[in-house]
């Protein structure tokens, strides 16, 4: 694998992992995930080509790759919204391979790219947060929002510094996309998830709001030492944040930088990797055409 050790360190480092050097049980073990789309038709696409991914508890992994590389497909396989055709997924010791999406939700917190996708616009801020507070729990005929929970939500929202702690009974539809994405982040971490999945969660926001949300993400992740996978198209973001950087290409993990290697990485290096991967693409296409 390519070792970029000759490159200069240009970005601030994340605090080191607590468990470095200590043998740990992996939080996430995804083994030979394979995912086809439109299998058996002329449109057949191999979106994941045997992906193996081991993530340690508390590790923050950035995932990059060109469009169609399989980033979102990989996340879909882990979250269960589009389960893989082959492969095994173990999360926190539970074999979740055959768990449906809603059952996996008890272990996984998620934030989507679309800032409107993570909240219910017709419901109030407190109702949305109460829904998140019951993630993975049986929902019965107890009250949907209680007074003690409101107190918790106020404390949680005051972290955002947006004044939302005074607007609990307001409809979420009245808020901006950036505010809604911040609330979604809080909601995803309200109950500590075993795994936090962030699918380009700042890509649809303006630069300033994106930065605010990224800062909030870091605070939340560090505070609870959350195991996190984050997809991003922003190279600088991928370099600056997290303990590890992986690059997907054509459904495979082609690069895997640990914290040390990542420190020396620059945006230019990453772009070079993209270009060399793209030229591999044309080679592999001709190989496939020749060899069938």
């Amino acid at each position: 694998m390519y070792n970029p050790s000759h490159l200069e360190a240009t970005v601030p480092a994340m605090p080191p992992m607590a468990a470095v050097g200590v043998p740990t049980v992996n939080m996430l073990e995804a083994t030979s995930l394979v995912k086809y789309f439109d299998r058996g038709t002329v449109n057949e696409v191999l979106a994941l080509d045997g992906v193996d991914l081991r993530v340690q508890p508390g590790e923050f992994v950035c995932i990059i790759g060109s469009n169609g590389a399989g980033k979102s497909t990989l996340m879909g396989c882990i979250s269960g919204c589009s389960p893989p055709d082959y492969g095994r997924t173990v999360l926190d010791g539970h074999d979740i391979t055959f768990w449906p999406e809603y059952r996996r939700a008890s272990l996984i917190g998620r934030v989507f790219q679309d800032p409107l996708a993570g909240t219910c616009s017709s419901m109030t801020i407190e109702e949305n947060m109460a829904l998140a507070l019951r993630r993975g729990r049986q929902r019965g005929f107890r009250r949907g929002v209680t007074n003690s929970e409101r107190e918790l939500f106020r404390t949680s929202l005051s972290k955002l510094d947006l004044g939302l702690e005074h607007r609990l009974p307001d409809q979420v539809g009245l808020l901006s996309g950036g505010q809604r994405q911040s609330i979604t982040l809080l909601m995803a971490t309200l109950i500590k998830p075993k795994l936090l999945l962030l699918d380009e969660h700042t890509a649809s926001l303006d630069p300033k709001t994106a930065e605010l949300n990224m800062k909030l993400t870091c605070e939340l992740v560090e505070e609870e030492r959350l195991t996190t996978l984050m997809i991003t198209h922003n190279m600088q973001q991928a370099i600056s944040y997290g303990h590890r950087l992986i690059m997907l290409h054509q459904g495979r993990i082609i690069l895997d930088f640990d914290q040390e290697a990542k420190k020396r990485l620059t945006v230019r290096d990453l772009l070079q990797h993209f270009h060399s991967a793209a030229s591999d693409l044309s080679n592999s296409i001709s190989d496939r055409l020749l060899l069938g």
């Binding site: 909240t119 019965g140 005929f141 929002v145």
Partner: peptide, 28 residues
């Protein structure tokens, strides 16, 4: 009464944003 319970809230969320409420553990 029902719409204010946990189950009623899940019903409302199912109609509003099924993807979101699935990611919060409700079988829509």
């Amino acid at each position: 009464w029902l719409m204010r319970t946990e189950f009623g809230q899940a019903l409302l969320a199912t109609g509003d944003n099924p993807r979101m409420i699935t990611s919060l553990g409700v079988n829509t």
